[in-house]
């Protein structure tokens, strides 16, 4: 699995993500980093991660400026050709702002920044990201965000549920997200956006391994693909 992490000014989970992707790729080295001003991606990439953080200071709307940066046009092209993309937290916001994923992440209903471990239910097995979990399995993953309140119009929600594209739901909704949605998949099931941080919980030294199988599933899915 050859993976890369996009870096924006204000990204702050980029190195954690690179370490996680590197380890599960079977490399000792972290995944490579790509600066947002690049306009093309290296050849031969299998996975691109858009990391958490506060790209461009969350100015205008979270993820809005990053979504219009030169590299994101290349990422949109990569995704449309069937490349795997994982967006976590601010990365999820960036993916919705580009339109790769539907919906939008608004200010938390409680108006507070929420930073704690949260229960998730794995709601589909039908994606590389979730294939190694059991459907309905409960896992515990950290969240840390101010704008994670997932919203979409009724048609979009019906489509997401009907096509089994909700990847994770919260067991105890921390932010007001509609239908407890914590993560969604693209129509081709190769792009996952999620607010919780699997890169922070995939090694016993980090205090848990509940996020590890997202990376294992990606690596395994790519080997078998």
């Amino acid at each position: 699995m050859r993976a890369a992490v996009i870096q924006f000014p204000g990204s702050n989970c980029d190195r954690d993500m690179a370490v996680a992707l590197g380890r599960f790729s079977g490399n000792s080295k972290p995944a490579e980093m790509i600066w947002h001003k690049e306009s093309s991606l290296p050849d031969g990439l299998d996975v691109i991660a858009i990391p958490g953080g506060f790209s461009f200071g969350d100015y205008l709307r979270c993820g809005a400026i990053a979504a219009r940066s030169p590299i994101m046009q290349a990422v949109v092209k990569f995704a449309s050709k069937g490349g795997y993309v994982l967006g976590v937290c601010n990365g999820f916001q960036v993916l919705t702002e580009t339109g790769i994923l539907p919906g939008v992440l608004m200010r938390n209903a409680g108006l507070k920044f929420v930073c704690r471990e949260i229960g998730l239910e794995v709601t589909t097995k039908d994606s590389a990201f979730t294939a190694v979990y059991r459907k309905g399995e409960k896992i515990s993953v950290p969240i840390a965000h101010h704008d994670g309140n997932y919203t979409a119009d009724t048609d979009t929600l019906n489509r997401l549920h009907g096509d089994d594209r909700v990847a994770f739901t919260y067991t105890d909704n921390p932010n007001g997200s509609v239908d407890d949605i914590a993560g969604v998949l693209s129509a081709n099931r190769r792009v996952l956006g999620m607010m919780p941080h699997p890169e922070r919980i995939n090694d016993p030294v980090l205090g848990g391994t509940d996020g590890a199988r997202i990376f294992e599933g990606l690596a395994f899915g790519l080997v078998s693909a």
Binding site: R68, T96, V104, M106
Partner: peptide
């Protein structure tokens, strides 16, 4: 349409 508003919401 392209940046200043998110026309989803």
């Amino acid at each position: 349409e392209k940046l200043l508003a998110n026309t989803v919401i």
